[in-house]
Amino acid sequence: MTQRDHQQKKMQIRDGFIAGSPIVMGYLPIALAYGVLAQQSGMSLMELTGMSLLVFAGAAQFMGANMIAFSASAIEIIVATFVLNFRHFVMSLSFVNQLKRIALPWKFSLTLGLTDETFSVSSIYRKQANQAYGQYFYGTLILVAYLSWVFGSLLGGLLGDVIPPQLSQSMGVALYAMFIGLLIPSVKKQHKIILISVTAMIVNYLLQPMIGEGWGIVAGTLVGGVAGIFVLDEEENT
């Protein structure tokens, strides 16, 4: 490997770290809260950390821990998880389409760590997909998020309720604020993008009471995307 290659790789890793840091900020309080809840539902430290290691999906883990607490059956919990997490299929499709130039083994590994948050942040950083060693950028971003999630869960299970409830409730807004912080710059660049997001919001809002949170987000995302076909400018290819 040449000096230049080495330099580029290091830069991508550093940038990925920086891009992932808002996710860490958002994940830590939620992971702590999950750890506390999971322990109260009777899960051991191994089990609750294991769930974070293997599942890596915030909302589904909260739901899972809750359902374990009132002893729902395994099948019920697994089906509910599938429904809630199916939205990642749509996000992953968009994500890998962005990563067209990245080799399949990398694409595969990156999608393992796809969550609402890692997807949203990655999709805002589009140019790295066409840069040398761009996979290291996305890989670092995802790994940092993953580690903070696992570490936060473990900490929550170990320490219990260390954050005062009012503060943890306030921190619950962190991820929503991050989503807003990701969306607004794109809207400023191309105003019409807001039509896509608002369509998704309305569809999700109207359907969620009938079809539940998981399918509501799926439906909102799909229909909002359709609005995008009419709204997005043609030349937007990179």
Binding site: S94, N97, M201, Q208
Partner: peptide
Amino acid sequence: NKWLEAIPYAALGALIFPGIITV
């Protein structure tokens, strides 16, 4: 391709609202 490019903006919308009002 255009639809897939719009997915992030749609997903962000659906993730923000109505979730944010339940904080």
